[in-house]
Amino acid sequence: MEKEQLYETIEAYLEGELTGEELAAFERELTTDQSLAREVALHRSLQNQLGDQPKMALRTTLDAIAKDFPESDLDAGDQPQSPNGTGGSTGGLPFWMWGLAFFLVIGGGVTWYLLTMEDETVSTLSTEDPPAEEDPATTDAETNTALSEAGTEEETPAEEPAASAATPATQGAAARPDAYGTNRELELLISDEPPSRRYSFTEGDLTYNPGFITFSGKLTTSRSVEEGFYLNLYSNQYPDNRLLRGKMTFSEVKENVPQAFAGPKDYIAAYTGETNLSPALYYGVITTGDSSIALWVGKVRVE
């Protein structure tokens, strides 16, 4: 069997799309062909692991955190410390941002600007942090030396870290000078033309009342709204991590005069989600069910 055909068959089998004689034949082959069985197992694992969206999102977030965790922080771990996490966000852009980037490239857009954007973000967000050492070889050696000189007692995990665990990192952002700082990429999305002609969100309004985030606005489209639209919430502090994702509801605005042709229809779009937000600036991004393209972006300042 050609490899491409083999992949198709394995995927159809895993999706339960093989039936009748086709299924029976494939299962017979599975019992006798070890390498086929291993190949099927690998495809199943890949599907299970890489299809696990929350876990993929977590990996992305953790990569971004690890990327700018300096080795120099190794000595500071046991003491309570103020969060220096605002140096973050050097790691990959959120998935939907790549979607937008992709869209602009296709549309002959401003590729260069997007390519340089990540660096600019770093300088915007990391004002509190000195730049990390750039020479991993020397810092590695230095840290190792420092550690061995400092005495390398065995870790005893039996005790919880004392009160230092009450790190202020999760407290309100108001203490941070850039608590209401804007995010460059998201701001650009707001000022840009909407990337989709199919779905036009207008008059959007994002509001926060203690315990609830609410969106209301208008969607104009000639397509069905069945596929689902989602409001994704990000904070200015950690734009690479989604705080919330919720499905929006739509109710059609009936025209008084019936239209001769099925032209675009207007819908009242709404979303209310329960969440407690600490003081910061938050961005709401609307996407369709499977898409990563931002259809609307707005912000709300939480005091």
Partner: peptide, 23 residues
């Protein structure tokens, strides 16, 4: 998966784990 919280977990615990693994 709250990023700010995860960052605090890194700050709190990674140094100790790292020391162990580097040893």
């Amino acid at each position: 998966g709250d990023a700010a919280g995860l960052r605090s977990i890194y700050q709190e615990f990674l140094p100790r784990v790292a020391r162990h693994i580097m040893n």
